[in-house]
Design a protein around this nucleic acid. Structure first.
Length: 932
DNA sequence: TGATTCACG
DNA sequence: GACGTACGTGAATCAG
């Protein structure tokens, strides 16, 4: 395309980029040979960020312009020009040619000219582009370039992401761009050693220029200046000022050996770019760019933990031999293991504790493994064998080192960035260790590796993985602890037994890691694992340890109120049924309703019991009073048993807070699951239930802040299925359900009734779930034919939805899996099954990419959140699928909302560009009910 | 231990 | 033509 009207040229000041990169970054060196590459790395990062930021923009032409040589025509005019510049730092010099290579690798034109400064080339190009009728953006913050601004030329400070237009220039110089040189000529520039007029700065210069029009007029009429000192300075220094103007005046006539047309934007060649980055050994950037280009990142050979790769021959691992495990009882032995871990660069770690509640249990021992079959156990607080149960003997068994002693010795290893720590469900161990002041990092997690590769195929617990991938059934914990009431804790297990069990766990973990690590690439889920799974571990560990304050007395009051109401309802129910029975027993209730009272519509399930679910009772409620009472009773029973009662037992006596646990690999779609207690299903839909949220409170002087994505799954559907009408509605900020209703039923928006809107809303949700006429009919309580009619109409109006569904199912049928927009893989093993199971699988396959993409987005937000709110007195406490809950000092609530909202709304960038905006709603209050 | 029910997104 | 039918979770409870 020839450059002309409608074109947009971006000119990057390469030298400025390099210096900024150099000063912004610590002195990094290339691992393999120590070559300094900090500036190159920063340069590439900035370039990448810049390219990403402009993806989909209107840039048509681009070039990075470099200075070349130190002698320019300005030195001929004035030998002191830029004379007092500091020499280029030694470690920057070799990086200069590399930044040129980098630019070329990005397939961006890279230009320089002997004897000219980059500024002159930029000026020339800008002038040419302007004359051709195009627009220009100069990426630089160099004030010397500001004289070019105007008539379609703008500057952009890439670091501050601030555009500088004519007004911006005026702000800086006090004159419009065409007089900037005059001001600079007067004011001079100490950095470039431009002399100017002594004693006159930018302020005074602007004042004078504005009064006299131009520099030339000013100098000619210098006699008229009222202030004697100023007048004299100008008269005395006329020659110097005129020279200064020549020095700062950019040359728009630079002889270029290329034209604007040569600068047309070109897509980078993935291979060229990635091979350059690989050569530089930029791991993070290589992955990021591979992501952006949607190719699997190349493997960078490495000796550091990030890429610590197990031996290729892991399959030839020795058989399990529990008697070979070592029990570490003294410092000398421990140090030998630490040394082994260091020489390998990795170590599998497993902690044994007195229970499963990470916030309360004690650390009993630690096992380590460095090679298959080579593992040890470090017992810490095992109790004396044969201890008197009656008196609960507390005596420690012989031959154990102290907990602090051992952790002090292990801490440098566990925190060493050069040693990879491998675990199965590392969040657990990380929390235990964090309670002892050890911040374990970096980590790999075999559970998460399995999850990234095999979600939907099987579970990811260690026992299942060991049997499946190592063909080895681990020692069941039951054989050590027993079961039921007589179950004991791990500290009561004899040390020799514990050694076999614990060391085996570390051994298994290491072997799994050796198998999984190389598989990640082949399964094309490396970036899912490294960017969506692993980084979540420390974030969730922090949230879980922070916990949320729960007001026990509030819950307990509610509990009592519920009890009373339930007793009343129970009496009425017994009265109505004519006998006393267990209202909580669906079986008894079914018999009362359908056998004794003879109500219609009794259906027996596969166990032969009548169904008495809420939907059944709801239907019966029109016939009889009893079902309504049972529904009310059940609601209260649920609230009391699951929430007001159970929640109190989860309040940690030490912290006064409730600490949930998130299961990263819980849901196949990428969603988190919350357990012990589940804080993702605290009531909100019913008025009565919502009040339970009043018991979730902020600490004194703080507030709870809730931010939630508005309609995130529908937005993702609109994008993925590419439905223009829906996308436009979201862009316009319309009520999406009303808009759907309007489209479907031909009702103008201003005549929309709540009932019609409600129906459209049900359909919108139904679509996400893989709708059926039957299901919609049941949900809306309308005849099935009518529901089917709605669905047909919906697909007629939004045919893209049908296409999306068909394509998704076809993909699943072919590959036995579906994927989210971020590359998360969800296996659909039943998609080709026969019978009703195929229906389930189909609907799950339709839903998974949508639900999963939403899950990926909030994960990305959570991973970025700690940095984004680092300066605020705030903590992220809970995640509820599309909501994040924070606790923050009262006066910092607004800044927190601003910061967190920004992260959430931009969480898809830069890997995925959504055609619809993500919108986040926020609220705050003393408790969760108020904040939501 | 499995089925049922119901809380959430 | 029949069959079964909205996606993803966790916890409490009953009953065998």
């Amino acid at each position: 395309m020839a450059f002309g009207k409608g074109c947009h040229l971006h000119l990057i000041d390469g030298s400025a980029f390099i210096f900024r990169a150099y000063h912004a970054l610590p002195p990094l060196t290339r691992k393999s040979d120590g070559l300094p590459i900090g500036a190159v790395s920063g340069f590439c990062n900035m370039l990448q960020k810049y390219v990403e930021g402009n993806a989909g923009g209107d840039v048509t032409h681009i070039a990075v312009i470099f200075d070349k040589g130190s002698h320019t025509f300005r030195n001929d005019m004035y030998d002191q020009y830029k004379a007092n510049r500091e020499a280029m730092p030694e470690d920057l010099r070799p990086q200069i040619p590399l930044t040129r290579q980098a630019t070329e690798a990005f397939n961006i034109a890279c230009k320089e000219l002997e004897g000219y400064e980059a500024d002159d080339m930029i000026a020339t190009l800008a002038c040419q582009a302007r004359e051709a009728g195009g627009r220009v953006t100069i990426i630089s913050s160099d004030k010397d370039l500001m004289q070019l601004v105007g008539d379609g030329v703008e500057m952009l400070d890439a670091m501050k992401n601030k555009r500088i237009d004519r007004d911006g220039v005026f702000e800086k110089f006090g004159v419009w761009p065409d007089r900037v040189v005059d001001v600079q000529a007067l004011a001079g520039d100490s950095v470039d050693n431009v002399p100017g007029a002594p004693g006159i700065g930018i302020k005074t210069a602007a004042l004078l220029i504005n009064e006299y029009g131009t520099l030339e007029d000013l100098l000619d009429r210098a006699e008229e200046i009222k202030q004697p000192k100023r007048r004299q300075t100008l008269l005395d220094n006329r020659a110097q000022i005129e020279l200064s103007k020549k020095l700062v005046q950019l040359d728009c006539e630079t002889p270029l050996d290329f034209t604007l047309d040569d600068l047309e934007v070109k897509e980078p060649d993935p291979e060229t770019l990635l091979s350059f980055l690989t050569e530089m050994e930029f791991r993070t950037l290589t992955k990021r760019i591979a992501d952006a280009l949607d190719v699997e990142p190349p493997v960078i050979p490495d000796t550091t933990p990030e890429g610590a790769n197990p031996p290729e021959n892991a399959a030839e691992a020795p058989p399990f031999e529990s008697s070979a495990y070592e029990c570490v009882r003294d410092m000398a032995a421990l140090n030998r293991w630490i040394e082994k871990a260091r020489t390998h660069g990795w170590v599998a770690v497993d902690t044994e504790t007195t229970g499963l509640n990470e916030m309360r249990v004690d650390l009993v021992g630690i096992s380590l493994c460095v090679e298959a079959g080579e593992a040890c156990y470090i017992p810490l607080i095992h109790k004396e064998a044969g201890g008197d149960d009656l008196f609960g003997s507390d005596a420690l068994a012989e031959g154990q080192m102290g907990v602090n002693e051992v952790l002090d010795a292990l801490r440098p290893l566990l925190e060493d960035p050069a040693v990879m720590k491998i675990g199965q469900n590392m969040k657990y161990d990380a929390k235990i260790l964090a309670r002892h002041g050890v911040k374990i990092a970096p980590i790999d997690d075999t559970m998460l590796m399995s999850y990234a590769m095999n979600a939907g195929l099987h579970g990811h617990g260690m026992d299942a993985l060991s049997e499946r991938y190592l063909n080895h059934a681990p020692i069941p914990i039951k054989t050590l602890l027993g079961t039921g009431k007589s179950q004991k804790t791990f500290d009561l297990v004899p040390i020799d037994e514990a050694t076999k069990y614990a060391a085996e766990d570390a051994d298994i973990t290491l072997r799994l890691w050796q198998i999984f690590k190389p598989q990640l690439h082949k399964a094309r889920v490396t970036r899912v694992y490294e960017r969506l799974e692993r980084p979540l571990v420390p974030v969730l560990a922090e949230m879980e340890m922070a916990g949320i304050k729960v007001a026990r007395d509030t819950l307990s009051r509610m509990s009592n109120a519920f009890s009373q109401k339930m007793a009343g309802l129970e009496a009425e129910i017994h009265e109505l049924s004519g006998e006393t029975f267990n209202v909580g027993s669906p079986k008894q209730l079914g018999e009362i309703l359908f056998d004794k009272m003879g109500l219609e519509g009794g259906k027996k399930g596969k166990t032969g019991a009548y169904a008495t679910g809420a939907d059944v009772l709801e239907d019966l409620a029109t016939e009889h009073e009893l079902p309504r009472r049972v529904l009310d009773w059940r609601q209260l029973s649920k609230l009391k048993s699951t929430y007001t009662d159970a929640l109190q037992e989860h309040i940690n006596p030490e912290t006064g807070r409730v600490h949930t646990s998130y299961v990263i690999s819980g849901a196949a779609t990428g969603r988190l699951a919350s357990t012990d207690p589940n804080l993702q299903n605290i009531p909100v839909r019913s008025e009565e239930g919502r009040r339970i949220r009043e018991a979730f409170v902020a600490e004194e002087g703080k507030v709870l802040v809730s931010l939630d994505y508005s309609q995130i799954e529908l937005r993702i559907l609109a994008h993925m299925a590419d439905i223009d009408a829906l996308k436009q509605a979201f862009r316009d900020g319309q009520d999406i359900h009303a808009m759907t209703a309007s489209e479907m039923f031909n009702v103008p928006l201003d005549e929309m009734t709540p009932e019609v809107r409600r129906q459209a809303k049900a359909i919108n949700f139904g679509v996400i779930y893989g709708i059926s006429g039957f299901g919609l009919a049941r949900n809306l309580r309308i005849p099935r034919a009518e529901a089917q009619g709605f669905i047909d109409r919906y697909f007629e109006r939004f045919p893209g939805i049908r296409t999306y569904m068909d394509q998704t199912i076809a993909f699943a049928r072919e590959h036995d899996r579906v994927e989210t927009m971020f590359g998360r893989v969800i296996h659909t093993p039943e998609i080709n099954a026969k019978g009703p199971r195929a229906g389930f699988a189909k609907r799950a396959a339709i839903n998974a990419p949508i639900q999963g993409t939403a899950a990926d987005i909030i994960r990305r937000a959570m991973i970025r959140m700690p940095d984004a709110i680092a300066g605020l007195p705030a903590k992220m406490l809970l995640q509820v699928h599309d909501e994040l809950l924070f606790e923050v000092d009262k006066d910092a609530a607004e800044p927190l909302i601003d910061a967190a909202r920004k992260v959430m709304e931009n969480a898809a960038d830069p890997v995925v560009h959504l055609d619809v905006p993500l919108v986040v709603d926020a609220g705050q209050g003393a408790n969760w009910a108020e904040a939501h």
